[in-house]
Computed example of a mutant assay.
Amino acid sequence: MRRVASLSLISIGASAAMMYVAPSMAQAPPPAFNACRVCHTVQKDAKSGLGPNLNGVAGRPAAALPGFTYSAALKGSRLRWDDQTLNDFLAAPMKKVPGTRMPIATPDPAKRAAIIAYLKSLK
């Protein structure tokens, strides 16, 4: 009798564990993000690379990551990284913020949307 009860509790525990979904899990990076990896890190608390760490960038003011040396242009931009601003910047960084050091554009709207969705999943 005891053995059956133990198995039932194990089954209940396993079912509960299977229903648990960890909050704020990042999506898998889209293929379009591969070009971004050359300069940017995304792991929480990772050091920035040539570009700033992008973990938590969505919703953050531009040029606000402590410890990274941003261009004067980006510091003075007063941007906040919302969906539209990210989209515009990724489409043409040097047009959106003349003087930025970000040289890589993502002209394809679908690729930009995938990158933005991924960035929003990083926390």
Results as ranks from 00 to 15, higher is better:
Ser71Cys: 12
Ser77Gly: 06
Pro93Ser: 00
Phe89Gly: 11
Ser71His: 06
Ser48Met: 05
Gln27His: 13
Ser121Trp: 02
Phe89Ser: 11
Ala117Glu: 13
Ser11Gly: 14
Tyr118Met: 02
Tyr20Pro: 00
Thr69Pro: 11
Pro31Asp: 04
Asp82Lys: 15
Pro107Asn: 10
Tyr20Gln: 00
Val57Lys: 02
Cys36Leu: 01
Lys75Gly: 03
Arg112Cys: 04
Lys95Arg: 13
Ala113His: 02
Ala28Ile: 04
Trp81Ser: 06
Ala64Lys: 10
Phe33Ala: 12
Val42His: 07
Met18His: 09
Phe68Thr: 07
Val38Tyr: 14
Gly59Ala: 06
Ala110Ser: 09
Ala105Asn: 13
Gln43Trp: 05
Leu65Trp: 10
Gly49Gln: 06
Lys111Trp: 00
Arg80Tyr: 10
Thr41Tyr: 06
Cys36Glu: 05
Gln27Ser: 13
Leu79Glu: 09
Pro103Asn: 06
Ser15Trp: 14
Pro98Ala: 15
Gln27Lys: 15
Met94His: 14
Ala14Phe: 14
Tyr70Asn: 11
Arg60Ala: 14
Val38Lys: 02
Trp81Met: 01
Met19Pro: 01
Gly51Pro: 07
Arg3Asn: 14
Pro109Gln: 11
Thr106Gly: 07
Ala73Tyr: 07
Gln27Asn: 15
Leu86Arg: 04
Lys111Gly: 03
Lys75Phe: 03
Arg37Gln: 12
Lys111Asn: 07
Thr106Glu: 13
Arg2Lys: 12
Lys44Tyr: 10
Ile116Met: 00
Ala113Cys: 02
Asp45Arg: 01
Tyr70Cys: 07
Ser15Lys: 15
Ala35Tyr: 03
Leu54Lys: 03
Tyr118His: 05
Ile104Val: 13
Ser48Ile: 07
Phe33Gln: 04
Thr85Asn: 07
Ala113Ser: 06
Asp88His: 08
Pro103Thr: 12
Leu74Gly: 09
Ala72Asp: 09
Ile104Cys: 02
Met102Trp: 08
Ile12Val: 11
Ala16Ile: 10
Asp108Arg: 01
Lys123Ile: 00
Leu122Asp: 11
Ala32Phe: 11
Pro30Ile: 04
Leu122Lys: 11
Ala5Asp: 15
Ala14Arg: 02
Arg37Trp: 07
Arg101Lys: 11
Leu122Gly: 10
Ile12Pro: 00
Ala14Ser: 12
Arg80Ser: 12
Arg3Ser: 14
Arg3Ile: 15
Ala117Ser: 12
Ile104Asn: 10
Pro23Ser: 01
Ala63Glu: 12
Ile10His: 09
Met19Asp: 12
Ala58Met: 04
Val38Cys: 10
Thr85Arg: 09
Asp82Gly: 08
Val57Tyr: 07
Tyr118Arg: 05
Ala64Gly: 02
Arg37Lys: 12
Gln84Leu: 09
Arg3Pro: 04
Tyr20Asn: 05
Ile104Ser: 07
Leu119Ala: 09
Gly56Tyr: 00
His40Gly: 07
Thr85Phe: 00
Arg101Gln: 15
Leu50Pro: 04
Asp45Val: 10
Asp88Cys: 04
Asp88Trp: 08
Thr85Cys: 01
Arg60Ile: 08
Asp108Ala: 08
Pro30Cys: 02
Pro52Ile: 06
Gly51Asp: 03
Asp82Ser: 09
Ala117Gln: 08
